[in-house]
Design a protein around this nucleic acid. Structure first.
Lengths: 212, 212, 212, 212
DNA sequence: CATGAATGAGGTTTCATTCAT
DNA sequence: TATGAATGAAACCTCATTCAT
């Protein structure tokens, strides 16, 4: 992707005053709302500002350009996801593999479901805006967390390598995406969660027992 | 996605073998090239026409609008994928489950790898243009093919339900996407293929043995 | 001047059809008119297009950006000036120094007067748009022409160096600018012309006799 | 130039010695610095304020608008020039014409060279901001000073008229501008000074001896 | 049928200026 | 008095689409 090359994404101004924080918050929220109600190709900075109840000028005081705005919103979302999954991995240490997988998958699915709308809204823009960097960063965090967790598993003989873990994560998020975009119901989500658990358990199980 | 609502996507005119015309072919190919060299946000109809060696006017004689052009290109690609995988499923009938999975996965990975550039180029535009319809259609074809294949498996006791199969497909294509976008090497692709085989085998194995 | 760095100024499309030529002509003319009636800081591409009776899009089909438009207009003007003065220098060869100076000055003043409005309009924008390159180019042409002419003067013993000639030109155009901007009448222009003649004659006379 | 019509240029408030306040001084200086480092088209009030170490609000407390700020800065510069040249004219009274011209030219060139950066920075903005009024005012002061000086010249028989003197000044400042904008070295400046001396001497000499 | 000049709505971004704190 | 967040008009430029030739 040659697009979105060398644009400065750093926030233009760190909100210090209370008023500012509210404003930035409103703009981020509005971005998601516009994304949901108008679609990614009709997401304009003017519309976002309007929805946020501020002027375009204000928007540009906090975000140097449209890409930076989207970048920031994606970052917020991905960090929330990573936080939840990391926490789950902490909790599941020293438990058996199946328990670990269940814990991890449930954390992932739950946080995605809570923010299903945001997830869907962001899928499309991520790429255009250099979101791949962020995705890689999250991938790294999650892989590390899972690796650390697996090290403490009593019933894992062969530690899965990086590749296997990343593939599992990619598979899970890919499938999640498909389902969210298809607009799955809450009931389907629960089924999905169980399937994910099974998928991860069986895959990791197969890997960690390979050499035996 | 509320975007791309009621646009007529069918090619504007379709004389006996219009879609096989050199011109249409050239335009489709040019679309992919522009997508690859300029990125999705700098894909303009004029640029495509230029690259194809025709005028914009000509382009609009074969495609009613930009969305229809992209729609057609995506359709071509997805159909090629579906064709290959379906064929593999035919070949693998009456073989044991593990063989089936290997056959199916290899067909999928191979066709995606052959057209890796196209795949990457299209991921981003698919959504904006109503590609989800096409994706659903392919999903359906593949699920049917796999179901039919699984019915003939000697070692499957419990037939996996629709959901499980679709999830497997979603997981596989999601992970594939991650890798393609990350620009994985040919060597990595081979590793990936083996992992996919393992993942699908273990997952389907777990499913089809559940009730036992 | 750090501004106006690396913008591509080349015309976007060489007008080939008759229609196009008319359009380009109209746009150039409109640029000058807008410059005269609205001032350089209210020269907008929209306004120019409007005045030219075309749409903005059309303007941008022939000029890649605003700077390129101005650049082209300035170039046209400066080339016209250089052409006239060069021709005068040709005509005055082998004449005595005073005659040469008169011929050269009159050519310069006349062409500037004919297009007084254009001159005034362009002074301000030249700098913002990288016009200094063009000015240097004209300076060079004129200096060469004058040098060649002076070589044939029967009454010049010491040939003036580059610097002297360029300074004379700079002085003349500087003073011309002052006068045009002050809005001098036609009568004043005639007086000015005579003064220029005297100034150049005496200055060049002093220089070319220095060593004696 | 129809631009910059009816804006109040006078400083907004003028307490006893407001113009000597540190703040005003800092703002003026910052204006020049921004002009030099960013160019005239990226001269923004916010940037000036920032550079001056004050807030925009403060800037607007001392200058009613951007134009007034620039106007004031130009005025300062031009007055400094006029002061120096006037003083030189005083000193040269009763001396012979050639001496007068040398004195006057050297004063002009020296003051311009000392503030070469400021000069260059201001050339471009002067016009947009109604600077022509100021230029006329300076022209008047200088002409008066020169006239008064010439009256005391022992070797001038025919007093040059207004026009001749103003043209000389215009020629000198025009040429100066060319050179400064071309970024002439200090050595070139010295050469330039000698050429100016020669030019003015010969021109004024020719004028003042005309009727003889 | 093909061409490509013309269109113009609409998107992004800047910046002079104000005013509540 | 000083601050700097907020404003919003207005500038530049793009690009899908049409239609006379």
């Amino acid at each position: 992707m040659p697009a979105a090359a060398a644009t400065p994404f750093e926030p233009r101004k760190m909100p210090v005053q209370a008023r500012s924080t509210v404003t930035v918050e409103a703009i981020s929220e509005a971005t998601i709302q516009v994304l949901l109600t108008h679609g990614s190709d009709r997401l304009t900075t003017t519309r976002v500002a309007e929805r946020a109840g501020v002027s375009v000028g204000t928007l540009y005081q906090y975000f140097p350009n449209k890409a930076a705005l989207l970048f920031a919103v994606i970052q917020d979302h991905l960090e929330a996801v990573a936080d939840q999954v990391e926490a789950a991995c902490e909790r599941a240490r020293n438990k058996p593999l199946d328990h670990m997988m269940r814990e991890m998958v449930e954390a992932y699915v739950n946080v995605k479901m809570e923010r299903a709308d945001i997830s869907v809204a962001l899928y499309n823009v991520a790429q255009d805006v250099g979101g791949s960097v962020l995705i890689k960063r999250v991938m790294l965090r999650l892989r590390k967390a899972i690796e650390a967790m697996l090290q403490t598993a009593p019933d894992v003989e062969v530690q899965p390598d990086r590749f296997a873990i990343e593939m599992m994560l990619a598979a899970m998020s890919g499938a999640m995406r498909s389902l969210l975009e298809a607009g799955g119901s809450a009931a389907m989500m629960r089924t999905l969660r169980e399937h994910f658990v099974l998928l991860c358990q069986s895959y990791m199980g197969a890997i960690s027992a390979r050499r035996n």
